[in-house]
Amino acid sequence: MRIGVVTFPGTLDDRDAARAVKYAGAEAVSLWHGDADLKGVDAVILPGGFSYGDYLRCGAISRFAPVMTEIIAQANKGMPVLGICNGFQVLCEAHLLPGALTRNHELHFLCRDQTLKIENTTSAWTSNFTQGQEIVIPLKNGEGSFQCDDETLKSLEDNNRIIARYLGENPNGSRNLIAGITNERGNVVGLMPHPEHAIDSLTGPSTDGLPFFISVLTAMVGK
């Protein structure tokens, strides 16, 4: 199993994402934003950071990087894609996921351990969880407030496309406490908090992030 991890200029969490892939038992393959070549990977992770300095809007310029043309095409054919934090923003800008991520409602950059409730265990990246499972993983972002129109929100709710919600107080003003969503097919997932930072108790608050990366291996074996 080979999982690509994309590096844009300004990406921060590509190394941790690659490490998480290895912990899950797969091979991590570095993908460069400027190459329209996925090197034959089976899945792709868009990691966190500040790609292109967050200029214009978070993810707005990355979305047009050469590597994204291939990723969008393959995602539409069913390849699993996980966007974490900035990666989630890129997926929204690329219209692979609905809605948009805007400035946290209190305007502060947040960095803390966040409790989430897993709401969907059928997506390519969440099948290794149990329904309603509570997990603790780091949340660190300035623009993590998930926004969409009422119709989109209803569609996400009605079709079980919200994969995780924040538990407790709403950290950033996201509608319906949304921390992550998936597309209709369940292969593309966007998540604002960082599972790749919670795979080893030595370096993270828990190992609760690891099942995201194990889930995708299960999804690919099942194919």
Binding site: R103, N104, H105, L107, S145, Q147
Partner: peptide
């Protein structure tokens, strides 16, 4: 401009 229904925390500040 942000759509009227979208929260604008910077404007509020």
């Amino acid at each position: 401009m942000l759509k009227p229904e979208i929260l604008d925390p910077q404007g509020k500040a």
